[in-house]
Every structure is written in C-alpha cells, then in structure tokens.
Design a protein around this nucleic acid. Sequence first.
DNA 1: AAATCGGGCAACCGCTCCTGG
DNA 2: ACCAGGAGCGGTTGCCCGATT
Length: 366
Amino acid sequence: MGRHTCCHKQKLRKGLWSPEEDEKLIKHITTYGHGCWSSVPKLAGLQRCGKSCRLRWINYLRPDLKRGAFSDQEEDLIIELHAVLGNRWSQIATRLPGRTDNEIKNLWNSCIKKKLKQRGIDPNTHKPLAEAEASEDQASKSSERTSSSCDLKVPIATLESTTDAVRTSSSMPMLDKHAVERKPSKNSATPMNCFFLGQFFASQDVSSDPATIFPLAELSFATDCSRSQAATAGLSVCPNPYGRLFEMNQDSSCNTLSTGFPSTPTAVISTSMGVRTNINLPLYNPAHVCAGIDGIRYSDAVYSSNTSQSSISSVGGIEMQNSSPFFDNGFFPWSELTPDTDTQVQLEGEPEDLKWSEYLEGGFPS
DNA sequence: AAATCGGGCAACCGCTCCTGG
DNA sequence: ACCAGGAGCGGTTGCCCGATT
C-alpha cells in the first residue's frame, strides 16, 4: 500500500520527458520488451521510476497510438460509453483504438463536459441539467432515509430469468466470451444508471419481452445507487440516453451498427451479488461506417511526419497504415491489436448461443 | 509589450487489484 | 491463507502556451 517502491529511490527524474529519455525508452522496449516495468529504467539507463516509464510508453510512445484531434464520432462514442461505463476511462479507451485512457479522460474533463453542459446535459448523470439537479436533491434526501437500500440483493432467480430473456434476443449478436472484465469499483456509481433504469422499466413492459425492447449492449451495471432499482429489474439494465449506440442500423447495407461500429468488446454486468456478466460494447472504428466488418483499418499517426514512407500492413483482419519502425522490426505486439477479430466472426456468423444462467454462475470456458 | 487568464495536456499520486512465493 | 511486490486505474496537479486585457 502507499507509495510505489520504485518511487522511494532517490534522484529519480520527474516531470517532462526529454527526447533523449524517450529515445532510450523506445530503444529498450523495442529491443527487449518492457518485461518488468520496475526494471526498465535501470536496463534502459533512465533516471525514472518504472511507473513513469510505463506511463510514458502507454500514453505517448506506444507505436499504435493515434495522435491528433478526436473526431466528432469519437467524441460521441465517448459520451455514449461514459453514459454506460462511467469514469472507467481504461474501459472506454479499449473501444477507441489508438486512444489512451489518459487522453480520453483529459478530453472529457476539458472539452466534453463543457459541451454537454452547453447542451443542457449533466455530464455526470447524462440527464438534463434540471432533472439532474432535482434528482440529486431527491437522492440526497432519500439516501438519508434509506441509505441501506443500496445493499439490496438481487434474487438470483430474478436475475436469471431476466438475463435469459435477454439472451434470446435476435437483436443481440454481440455476445463475446472474450470479455473485458469490469470490476466492481468504488468509482462505478453513475447516477444516470439509476435514472434511466427506473425510467426505462417504468415505461416499458419488460416482462413481456424485454429482449426486443432494449439491446443487450445497452445493459448497464449495477452501481451502489442503482441497486434498489436493479432489484426490481432483476438486473442492472439501462438504455443510454442517446438511444442509438447499440442499435442495428436499419439503413446500412453492410451490417454495421448505427454508429458504424462493428462491435464487440465486452463489459461486465455487475450485480449486487457479485455476479459478473460480460456484455459487448462497440469498438469505435470510423473505417467501419461503410467498410463492413471484414477488418479494421487503423491509421497510425505516431510517425505521421513520415507519411511518404507509409505502408499498409494487414494482420489478422486488421489493416494498419503506418510508417513506424516498430512495425518493421517484428517487435510490435500485433496480438494486442486484434481483440476484435473474434467479434467480427461473431457478427458475420450466428450469435453465440449463450446460456446466461450458466454464465452467471461460472462464466464461459476460455 | 507586458501581465493575466484559461484551456489543454502530460505526468504524478495514491489507491486497489493481481500474482507469485 | 497470507504477504509483498508489481501492475493498472482514476483523480489530481502543474506546466506550457495561446488568447485576452
């Protein structure tokens, strides 16, 4: 607990990285890989702590980073994902190839928050500002009275019946056993979940056929504040307020999602019982808007100054345009960039026949 | 031209989770 | 089962730079 061990060492440099330091770190990692981060600075000849090296690599030096401004589509996706995931920047970042959690977090705090406020939307709750304030007041009052209600447990029978209904939906081809685990977190509370969950179940006849009403990917997560409503629903589920993230695109001839995303990394439904269920979330990729689901085209801009030497690489269904030396030396961990190939297969083929109740009990075999 | 302000971004800090012994 | 160290995450800080006064 507490301070990282490597930070105890004295005379470690802090602050901005110099080009020389960058060069050393790049050279070391491209040659040997990072291995144990705490040993990287020593091996690379850097007066930095391992943590600092890791951060520098992940947020700035990694060859697969996409530099430059966020597109409108990316911003929209971030907003939508934030509505579902809350401040889980790393989870959000996994849906935006080439973007880092830090980058997304900064964008959110500096730009998107303002934009949402200008549109009259509360960035924390994703509801209209007036309603957000009102419900906040109400929540603070009710929490005084019923603070223990957040610990309501969801009866497993209810949970299973609901998820089973969800499973049968034909509009949910995005199930993916290669789940990205979503851990219950102290930061997981997104009041919006409460709101939309309640609003949704109040306005829909879920019991008749919930699966046809809301797409699976719009499932959200039980949070401390949403548990009481989740108990009613049997599961924490909520459509996002933007209403389009996970819709199948009726107009598209190339079987893409409405936002053009092929889909399907996953998140996990976290119930108050500690049961976790994985749900697929869309992976942003502008090239998919009409490129179909055959592959991912990803343009690397790290070395964009050298575009004249750019080449197209195609690995495992992913096309990467780059001019980075990292791609040439065989070091680059391509596997890390292909998490969605399974997904594409699933999209093209049949939805996996998942037994949610089994999954909820023990998870899928790997 | 200088001072001030504000936005954006890189990096740090502190915490939790994970993993191996 | 327990512990220690490493890894990862999210919140926060502080610097840099452009805009404004």
